[in-house]
Design a binder for these strands. Structure first.
Lengths: 343, 343
DNA sequence: CGTGAACCCGCAATCGTTTGTATTATCGGG
DNA sequence: CCCGATAATACAAACGATTGCGGGTTCACG
């Protein structure tokens, strides 16, 4: 139960005043103290195993050296990489990351933002969707730097790092088009979620671009980003358009739902009907068949968010409202040429 | 850029001394101040939007109200639930959780422990495996409370919450035995990882218990907890014992590796050869066929770890060295009666 | 009416740093 | 030889809360 060694101890050991010790240890002020003294202090500090007290320092400098990260659901594998990305860049700058798990709904996220502000974090990274959260974010912005990740607000008033959904859907549609598909459908996510809405629009856009008819009829909305809703959406979509040879799913889980729908019709995935997912979550390559999916650089997303947050906290003016990260396409066996194309 | 409202402001607003305001706001000391004054102070605090400064408080009380959680790999879906469990109980007590991602190897974990100590966390939850980490943990224990999760040290000198691997393997073996299997093999994890070693022993134990021959010959060790090593291990195991009707895998990924091995022999999973996994990770129910797996209550594990840490930090004497959490068995289509059993 | 208990409340020290200002020592130039 | 500039260090005031201690009221009781 030895009491921690404080700056006072170091100063006494080095035979200098506490303030001199402080300056000697601080790189930015070490220049104004005699080099020889600096060395003496440094030695003393090392010898005593001195570690500055972050609270005392933070109290004086008015910074906690911590940033909060609020995640809608920590158990969702999607957010692991984001957290890892954030952590990897912040840890380099000696910041600590506080994680908040908003798994009890959007209002929970609000109170978590509040909690974080009470803890006096220096910055905030939000990954929570939902309309009211943006209000909380706006409010928070008055006190600390805020960056959104995998999520943006309509007016771009808050810096956001997001995947380029338009481009991503484009990858999927063009891939299918190049394989020869002409009748492509879309199982969309809920329209009240920004990604659901955005990807639906992107799909219709790209259909036109690749020279296919772009009909709202070709889209069926799933109630929620889960397997079951995906299946029911795919079933109604396929009953409306039995001639579809490919489906672009707004999400991997929806894609897996499509798997079931196609199976229940006695058809083969990647042969009779091609399917693409979105997110390229882990294990997707182990499915039967392995699923073609749009891969979003989530880790990078977290890292970029952390970087812009650092810039923001440093008082730099961060340029645009929204940064789009380019996705890639992981091509696997769930997509192939349409059946009437093969000889 | 308005300066934050401090206790002094509240005191002035309420017309009392700062110390009185402090006591009034603090539930444990509010009793010694006039109820009417308490109300006046509380009102003033609310009116001004006062939020106590955690750093100032912590500096005085010598507690940061934060605990560190060190995870070997945040991107591994396994740890999501653990984090969620930890967070859910700690957030109730107004603690914040700092997460550390030791994805750059065991030595990285050491330095993270060091980092956490520098940040003066009140407690530490470690989920990192490896021999040298236990040393770091021992050292850390000198300064703060430490609890291990999903991991334990040999001498139980540090409280640990772990899954009951012996019982878990027992569930798998007994399930297979009850289905009628008599020739059961085991694809083990690396023996230098505690779970690898423990589950192997448990397997041999239970084979004896259910009245089958328990031969080290029936075990093949995979190099690492991944799909590929699982496949190669399963291949050599099946070539040594072509008559096996079931395989207990030490891990879900190894189980998926077994899938491939069995497929490559032209046999059917759950029909010719039954396979069980371990951990019941997400999406396992969507595999072809869905995999029977031992489900470990990871979220509960995190929650329990947090609870015992709270007890520890409160100075209570926590009873045993190791708490075992009972697993359950998620039975799916990868296990069925052995082929010669069916008529 | 005096006195002591009970009750509130204010005073001031303290936690470990950082940082503006004062003080001392050093040195060169007139 | 003295004076002003300069360098190096010491002093002390913050930062915002908690808390032991003591001073002041109020009130009951003798």
């Amino acid at each position: 139960m030895s009491t921690r060694t404080t700056l006072k101890d170091v100063a006494r050991e080095a035979g200098v005043h506490i303030s001199t010790a402080s300056r000697a240890l601080n790189p930015s002020t070490a220049s104004i103290v005699n080099p020889e003294t600096v060395e003496r202090v440094t030695d003393a500090a090392r010898k005593l195993g001195y570690r500055p007290h972050p609270l005392a320092r933070g109290l004086r400098t008015n910074r906690t050296m911590s940033v909060g990260v609020i995640i809608p659901d920590v158990e969702n594998p999607l957010f692991g990489p984001i957290i890892a990305g954030v952590e990897s860049v912040l840890v380099e700058e000696d910041y600590s990351v506080l994680i908040g798990n908003a798994d009890r709904g959007p209002s929970h996220a609000d109170s978590l933002v509040e909690d974080m502000l009470e803890k006096h974090v220096d910055g905030l990274i939000l990954a929570t969707p939902g309309r009211n959260v943006s209000e909380a974010a706006q409010a928070a912005q008055a006190e600390v730097s805020v960056v959104l990740v995998n999520r943006s607000v309509d007016d771009d008033s808050i810096p956001a790092i997001v995947g380029d959904d338009h481009q991503g859907i484009g990858l999927a549609v063009r891939h299918l088009r190049e394989l020869g598909h002409e009748r492509i459908g879309h199982v969309a996510g809920p329209s009240w979620v920004s990604t659901g809405d955005g990807r639906r629009k992107a799909f219709l856009d790209w259909m036109k671009t690749v020279g296919l008819k772009s009909d709202a009829d070709l889209v069926e909305e799933a109630e929620w980003y889960q397997v079951e809703p995906g299946t029911t959406a795919a079933v109604t979509l396929l009953s409306r358009h039995p001639d579809l040879t490919a489906i672009v799913a707004a999400n991997d889980l929806l894609g897996l739902g499509c798997y079931r729908a196609v199976h229940s019709l006695g058809k083969d995935i990647g042969v009779d009907v091609s399917i693409t997912g979105y997110n390229d979550m882990p294990l997707l390559d182990l499915m039967q068949p392995p699923m073609t999916s749009v891969r979003v650089p989530y880790r990078r997303m977290g890292a970029d968010a952390a970087s812009t947050l650092l810039a923001l906290m440093a008082g730099e003016v961060v340029s645009p409202g929204r940064v789009l990260l380019s996705p890639t396409l992981a091509i696997r066996a769930s997509t192939g040429p349409p059946p009437n194309d093969r000889h």
